[in-house]
Computed example of a mutant assay.
Amino acid sequence: MRFQHVTALWQDFPTLVPGVLHVRGIRTGVPVDRPVAAYEAVAAERLAEVPESGFPEVAAWRRAFSAMGLKPTRYRCASESLLRRLRREGSLPRIHPLIDLCNAVSVAYGIPVGVFDLSRISGNLHVRYADGDEAYETFAGGTERPDAGEVVFADDGHRAHSRRWTNRQSGLSAVRDTTTDVLIITEALHDSAPQDVPKLVAALADELRAAWSAEPTTAVLTREAPVFTC
């Protein structure tokens, strides 16, 4: 399958830096408590100095949401939502070893990290503006239709695997106990994203090797080289 952002998004958001990892052999029962705690501690140190709204990574997404006509204090990117929860509760919920790890890396870097079960994706996956008739499955099992012009992750089956770009993932392709093959996507827009995203991708790849003895395929995409194939 191919993953890419459409040309219009590169034009509208020229500071976009996406990182991608593909990994097979994911399973439950893998201990990740130590790295999760370490990444959460990094985030907690940053939060002790400034609230998440002051993170440049988050501020850039707030500007993007405003540019898309979304109220950024109502619709937040995934990393901001996780940082808010970490600040208020002191830790993040434990869901699945891979999700726990990716969430912890996300808050440490302040950058959204999405994880998709590839067995639930039909054909290719594009980040694009919605037509308005895509099917989005909620975590509760309901179905929504994204607004026309909304940024979504959409597959060839015309199913939306996110809403409002990095705001909310679909329950359809969420990681579950049976998940083995995943695509991990991180996206940043802030000034130092060209340096930060490769560091995040490398750190996450190292953790996947250590925890799952898996060898991920990784890439940092650009406007000139926007396609990831797996």
Rank of each mutant, 00 (worst) to 15 (best):
L125S: 08
D147T: 05
P146K: 05
H161I: 01
L125P: 03
A154F: 02
V152Y: 03
A160E: 07
S162R: 03
R145F: 13
R159A: 13
D133E: 11
A135V: 08
A140V: 07
A154R: 02
A135G: 04
L125Q: 09
Y129L: 10
R145P: 07
V151N: 03
E137S: 02
F139M: 11
G132V: 13
A140K: 09
L125F: 11
A140Y: 03
G142I: 01
E137N: 03
H161F: 06
N167L: 05
G132H: 13
E144W: 14
R168L: 12
E150C: 09
V151G: 06
S162L: 04
D133C: 06
F153E: 00
A135F: 09
L125K: 04
D147N: 06
A130S: 13
W165K: 02
W165Y: 15
H158F: 14
R163S: 00
D133S: 08
L125N: 03
W165R: 02
G141K: 04
Y136W: 15
D147S: 09
H126F: 07
G142E: 15
G157V: 12
F153N: 02
F139T: 09
V151E: 01
V152P: 02
D156C: 10
R163Q: 04
D155W: 07
R159M: 14
F153D: 01
R128A: 14
V151P: 00
R159H: 15
G141Y: 05
G149V: 04
A140H: 07
N167R: 03
G142Q: 13
D147Q: 12
P146Q: 11
A135W: 07
A154P: 08
R128M: 15
A160L: 08
D133R: 10
S162Y: 02
Y129C: 02
F139E: 14
G141R: 06
H158Y: 14
G141F: 01
D156Y: 12
T166I: 10
A160K: 05
Y136A: 05
H126Q: 06
T166Y: 08
R168F: 02
A135C: 04
D133Q: 08
W165M: 11
P146H: 11
G149C: 08
E134D: 12
S162M: 06
D133H: 10
R168A: 08
G149R: 06
V152W: 06
H158D: 14
E134N: 09
W165N: 06
G132W: 14
V152M: 07
D155P: 06
Y129A: 06
D131V: 09
V152G: 01
G149H: 01
G132S: 13
L125T: 04
E144S: 09
V127D: 00
T166W: 05
A130D: 02
A140S: 15
E144A: 11
W165L: 12
D155H: 10
G142W: 09
E144H: 12
R168C: 08
A160P: 01
G141P: 05
R168D: 01
A130K: 00
D133A: 08
Y136D: 02
R168W: 02
A130M: 05
T143Y: 11
H158M: 13
F139L: 14
P146R: 09
G142R: 12
T143A: 10
R128T: 14
E134W: 04
D131Y: 08
D155V: 09
A160W: 01
E150A: 11
G141Q: 03
G132Q: 13
D147L: 12
G149A: 03
V151H: 00
N167Q: 14
D131S: 12
E150P: 04
R159E: 15
G157C: 13
